[in-house]
Amino acid sequence: MAPIIEVTHLSKHYGRLRAVDDVSFHVEPGEIFGFLGPNGAGKTTTIHALCTLLQPTAGAATVAGYDVATRPHDVRRSIGIIFQDSSLDERLTAYENLNFHGILYHLPRAVRRQRIDEVLQLVDLAPRRHAIVKTFSGGMKRRLEMARGLLHHPKVLFLDEPTLGLDPQSRSHMWEYLRALRAREGITMFLTTHYMDEAEDCDRIAVIDHGKIIALDTPAGLKRQYGGGDRLTLRTEDDAATAEALQQRCRVSVERSEEGLRIALTNGHAGLPEVLAACPSKIVALDLHHPSLDDVFLRLTGRGMRDTDANELDQLRSFRKKWNLRT
């Protein structure tokens, strides 16, 4: 099948800042595709370009077979978007927000009524349909926004940080909805996130940093390739003897550290029995660590996701402020 999103050498520059820098990838129909990266990495800019809200500086992108630059109207009616910041009208009721959306997307009255009932059921907001949105909690607003994004049965659903600011319970609920939706409608989802556990739920992930894609694979594939393998931490009554024994008998690399011996294994579960059998001394403590996407990111960029949360534009601004103070 032809890709539903195809991006070739896409760039978006703001003056000297390269928010998106020569990015290419494609998304298959029915896929849950994730953009993982710290704030300011270029995730939202990419989504805005794909949603026709931004003109790319260079390169091209097609969504549902339409070029975003030359056929924006066709792209717009093929996609649904859940923005990072709420874009509901809080002075209207849930029903009015949905009805407004249905009219903007040219749904006939009967279809509109039926679908509004449907999506409100889906996100558990049916009893609140005539309540003013201002009275909703953050999670409810998010769910209403999701319902609205689905109302016109888009082929692709874009979700920009869909669970930002939600409590863990609402987050897992939201993921349940998304998976159920994919199973039922076969809808393609393109989402951005800077939560590792959320990225784990995607079929494929593009890791993006400083506007460039630095790796693209399934979560398992990324961890296999960039996770640095499984790591066994072992503490025994005689670490020195154990280290020597293991290096000779199992041909594994062993490193001594404060927590005990660090043993690198290509496959932790399969390799563990052999290591334990070869161990000459009594084991005091044992920990098997599988690589996380955090490890992948650390390996790829040399820093953890948490260290890089400052927005690049903010950095630019604070730099300019400092400079102004000195002159």
Binding site: C51, H73, R76, R77, I79, I81, F83, S86, S87, L104
Partner: peptide, 14 residues
Amino acid sequence: EFGFLKEMLVAPIS
């Protein structure tokens, strides 16, 4: 300011 303009800008209307 409150984001609703985006809802209209990405809709298939001119």
